[in-house]
Design a protein around this nucleic acid. Structure first.
Length: 517
RNA sequence: GGGACGCUAGCUCAGUGGUAGAGCAUUCGGCUUUUAACCGACUGGUCCUGGGUUCGAAUCCCAGGCGUCCCA
């Protein structure tokens, strides 16, 4: 900062730089007074929410003769001449500090004879302090720590957003999530719940005998899903590598290797657009169970989601963006053909060729019909255009066309289809599952067909992961596989409208600075 | 990729062609029961950026940036 300190001290302080300068001045004054502005340690006995709960019955005006210690951030200061009330916030909530000059001076005189004046003058909203004292409910009914002693733990240099309106600018909320978390308690609650959801799922899987094994993020072939990968580069090996777009193919290798129940809850990366439902890096849970099929995976999906909802929300009847959603199993099961027939009247099972199907789809008013490369792809388009957004209550959509499911086992009774389901809730795909394809010859053919499409310019098509096919040739037991989009599940269970609200640090375009232009 | 909307003080927002504003925060003074404390005083601006129109632009036009929503 170029501003002269003496001048900064005498001028009114109101721009950001001036506020910083004023607070840096206070840092110096704290040091001169022997009060460290950046402390090393603090030992608390309680958190705010604990105290609020424990003393809920303390009558107005009464003091509990106890000694507590608590630390947190000053969110508001209400200062009188010889009395002050601060609102202190920790991870669990807030509690008022009752700061009386006479009491503080009495207990702190030995180390700081101006302790109360320093408290008034050198602390700001945003500072992190620790206090000790008794508990008192004020005459006005606010539970408070009746402070005997305080310590500055961290001096804050920057002002907090408006104490009433908080921070609403969404770009700023995402770019400076720490500020968002300080002033918006519901945002902290979202990420607390997110942690509880993943913990619940891991706990359930652990109880069922699944083990989590970490698979590589850096891969020589990005497989297991249809998506454009991120490309990176390894210097020593002098080769390009891809960031994984799915964990599927490596988890299946583990099944080949003899593990019977494996999963990975981890980050995958897809080089695609950003929307309220898409972030380029997101989290999936993939689960593989030997000797199981997609019917078992439906049961497992219901168990995982309902257990998480119960653990985190304590109910299966939830509300998402004002709309009631009932997670009580069993969930509706409908085949993709039936679902499309319900909405469009078209029975895709009756078409002899693609042209017939296209004619019917065009007749029904579907768009982008000409792009379809197969009846199955067209069926999927019809599903996405007419059915997907209507599936509010949890619904398993079953039995997908083989053309769009290169890793799924052929349906045991329905020709041209595979044993696959996707779970839809609030109009969004939230899980995807197969009876996994275990026939290495069929698998190679399907991957080669994908590779041909890639060759022809389809950037999302699979490539052939030869080592994966080799693994299948050693023999993979019948296996059920399941992938759950954790971010979307978190959105549902935390009532977030945008995936960016469910991801602590979503990807944003950097703000362009002058130097870059 | 297309469209609509938004961007003004640290924060939340007014201001639609004529001297850039309010509340909160900050700074100073007062105050022992406040909780959006209060009272008094002061202060604070790259009106997103760059061009253009105009005697005059936060305001109108063009281009760009960032964001939100909708569509593809």
């Amino acid at each position: 900062m170029s501003r002269d300190r003496a001048q900064a001290q005498s001028d009114p302080q109101t721009t950001l730089e001036e506020i910083r300068a004023t607070r840096l001045e206070k840092v110096e004054q704290l040091q001169q007074a022997g009060l460290t502005p950046y402390a090393y340690r603090w030992e608390s006995t309680h958190h705010a929410a604990e105290l609020q709960a424990k003393y809920v019955d303390l009558p107005n005006g009464e003091e509990a003769a106890v000694e507590v210690a608590i630390a947190g951030r000053i969110m508001a200061k209400r200062v009188f001449g010889k009395l002050a009330f601060f609102t202190l916030q920790d991870e669990t909530g807030t509690i008022q500090l009752y700061l009386e000059k006479s009491r503080i001076q009495e207990t702190m005189a030995a180390k700081d004879e101006s302790a109360f004046d320093h408290l008034k003058q050198l602390t700001d909203a945003g500072d992190i302090i620790g206090v000790t004292g008794s508990i008192k409910r004020t005459e006005k009914g606010e539970l408070s720590v009746y402070v005997r002693d305080y310590a500055m733990l961290t001096k804050s240099l920057l002002p907090l957003p408006d104490k009433w309106h908080g921070l609403t600018d969404v770009a700023k909320r995402y770019r400076q999530r720490y500020v968002d978390l300080i002033v918006n308690p519901e945002v902290r609650e979202t990420f607390r719940r997110r942690a509880l959801i993943t913990a619940s799922m891991r706990r359930y899987l652990d109880q069922q005998g699944f083990i989590e094994i970490e698979t590589p993020v850096l891969q020589t072939e990005a497989g297991g899903a249809e998506a454009r990968p991120f490309i990176t580069y390894h210097n020593t090996l002098d080769m390009s590598l891809y960031l994984r777009i799915a964990t599927e193919l490596h988890l299946k290798r583990l099944i080949v290797g003899g593990f019977e129940k494996v999963f990975e809850l981890g980050r995958v990366f897809r080089n695609e657009g950003i929307s309220t439902r898409h972030n380029p890096e997101f989290t999936t849970l993939e689960v593989y169970q030997a000797y199981a099929d997609y019917n078992d995976m439906m049961t497992l999906t219901e168990a995982l989601v309902t257990t998480a909802a119960q653990d985190v929300l304590g109910t299966l009847k939830i509300t998402y963006q004002g709309e009631p959603v009932d997670l009580t199993p069993p969930w509706r099961r409908v085949t993709m053909h039936e679902a499309v027939k319900e909405k469009t009247g078209i029975d895709f099972a009756t078409f002899a060729n693609l042209d017939e199907a296209k004619a019917a789809a065009t007749q029904a008013g579907l768009h982008s019909v000409e792009k379809a490369e197969s009846v199955g792809a067209l069926l999927n388009q019809a599903f996405e255009q007419t059915v997907e957004e209507t599936l509010i209550q949890p619904t398993f959509v079953l039995d997908y066309p083989v053309e769009i499911s290169p890793l799924a086992k052929p349906h045991r009774t329905k020709s041209g289809l595979v044993e696959r389901f996707e779970l839809f809730m609030v109009g969004r795909e939230t899980a995807n599952s197969f009876s996994e394809l275990t026939d290495p010859v069929d698998q190679l053919q399907r991957l080669q067909a994908q590779a041909d499409r890639k060759e022809a310019g389809d950037l999302e098509a699979h490539s052939v992961d030869e080592d994966f096919v080799t693994a299948l040739e050693y023999g993979m037991p019948p296996t059920g596989g399941l992938g759950i989009g954790i971010d979307r599940l978190v959105m549902l269970l935390t009532d977030c409208a945008s995936i960016r609200d469910a991801i602590a640090f979503p990807l944003l375009k950097p703000e362009k600075t002058d130097a870059e232009e």
